[in-house]
């Protein structure tokens, strides 16, 4: 079964499965304990190290299992965890499990340009105003028409002393938006990198005097980024390319890491994201096998009723036209061969003396003959005429 085509072979929208996009990815932590070694943390000893890799490893037999920051004694107390996902994903949720008391303030950010710029997805705090300059999230979600980074309550401590940060992209999105039809929602869920900023430790919430602060370290595990590899509805899976980079296994005549453009010869229609209703596949230009390149022309596309806008480039085999569908000047269509035949166009071969020019009728192959001359190539005198010695008037009336 091909998820990207129906049983009849027609293209249909397809998407990769939901995965933990952070799994196995390298996490960049702004602070990790163990350098220099302390009583409880030694980066050089695997039995006592708490590296950031533990945040996105599959778990299993690793011991210890939690990443841990350095001991934070005074401001700034924020620690940043950054996970490059390798390519664009469409997020569904982000979660992080804390191994000790969860922070009182956490900011969740995303990048769509591999870490060059960042935008907030949400905030989690007991003090939204002082920490982030925001009002607490309304119960019904964003007030505006589009998605918005809201400030939610801080992660709650659980009975085991830890806690869970859980964020769903729906939390910041107004109800009723449909991913297929809403470019703002598509933008909202798209991310190439995720950043968690642990802004303020819980136990220091009420401490005003920095001298009185108890040393604190953040500790967490299981950083999960639930999402789908972003392929714009044109691939059902993502693969590693020859350079080890994650890319979509593009179908429907598309290409690029996210299937976000048409392949070079597939430009008969403009690229579009696939929807549940319409696959919006890129179609190959119709060049009858005589061209390898084409370009898209929006005006022709509109004039055709939005059906075809491809223009063939560099028609070969002596063909010409938008679809290489007729013969170029000096050639005519051989009716005995298919239009796609390499020899579909034959040279006019007009006689150098009998013909009045070198260009024949492109359909019939008839050359323009001088007076008294006949034949497809004007190579014979007509009945009632005979050859003369003059190349200007090669046939004269028989006396």
């Amino acid at each position: 079964a091909d998820p990207c085509h129906d049983q009849g072979g027609a293209p249909r929208s397809c998407v990769p499965g939901l995965v933990n996009a952070a799994l196995g990815r390298e996490v960049l932590a702004s602070s990790t304990c163990g350098r220099p070694a302390t009583r409880v943390c030694d980066a050089s000893d695997p039995r006592r190290a708490h590296p950031a890799a533990l945040l996105t490893s599959a778990g299993g037999t690793a011991n210890p299992v939690c990443w841990r920051s350095e001991s934070l004694r005074k401001a700034p107390l924020n620690v940043t965890l950054t996970v490059p996902l390798g390519k664009a994903f469409e997020l569904v949720f982000v979660s992080l499990r804390f191994c000790s008391a969860p922070p009182a303030s956490v900011a969740l950010l995303k990048s769509q340009d591999h870490g060059r710029t960042w935008a907030p997805l949400g905030f989690f705090s007991s003090r939204c105003g002082p920490d982030y300059g925001r009002l607490p999230a309304p119960a019904n979600g964003p007030a505006g028409p589009g998605p918005e980074a809201l400030c939610f309550p801080e992660p709650q401590a659980q009975s085991d002393g830890g806690g869970l940060l859980a964020f769903s992209v729906q939390d910041g999105s107004p109800p009723g938006l449909d991913l297929d039809s809403s470019p703002v929602l598509q933008d909202w869920v798209t991310a190439t990198d995720i950043r968690v900023v642990l802004t303020r430790p819980a136990m220091l919430e009420d401490t005003r005097d920095s001298e009185a602060m108890v040393p604190y370290s953040y500790s967490a595990t299981e950083l999960q980024v639930g999402g789908r590899c972003k392929c714009n509805g044109h691939a059902s899976r993502c693969l590693l390319d020859t350079q080890g980079l994650l890319i979509c296994d593009c179908r429907h005549g598309t290409e690029g890491p996210d299937c976000s453009r048409c392949k070079p010869f597939y430009c008969d229609r403009p690229w579009q994201r696939a929807t549940a209703r319409e696959a919006h596949a890129c179609f190959a230009c119709s060049c009858n096998g005589h061209a390898r390149r084409c370009r898209f022309n929006m005006e022709l596309y509109r004039l055709s009723g939005r059906r075809s806008g491809g223009v063939c480039l560099n028609c070969r085999h002596n063909t010409a036209g938008r679809h290489c569908h007729y013969c170029r000047e000096g050639f005519y269509r051989d009716p005995g061969r298919a239009l796609s035949d390499r020899r579909a166009c034959r040279a006019c071969d007009c006689h150098p003396v009998g013909a009045a020019g070198k260009t024949c009728n492109q359909t019939t192959g008839q050359c323009p003959c001088k007076d008294g001359v006949t034949g497809l190539t004007c190579n014979r005198c007509a009945p009632g005429f005979q050859q003369s010695r003059s190349p200007v008037a090669p046939c004269v009336k028989t006396p």
Partner: peptide
């Protein structure tokens, strides 16, 4: 009636040297 093809050797190019096709 099928007429013979034009015989290039019969043409006199004396006054039309510039029109003479390359063979």
């Amino acid at each position: 009636e099928v007429m013979p093809t034009l015989d290039m050797a019969l043409f006199d190019w004396t006054d039309y040297e510039d029109l003479k096709p390359e063979v």
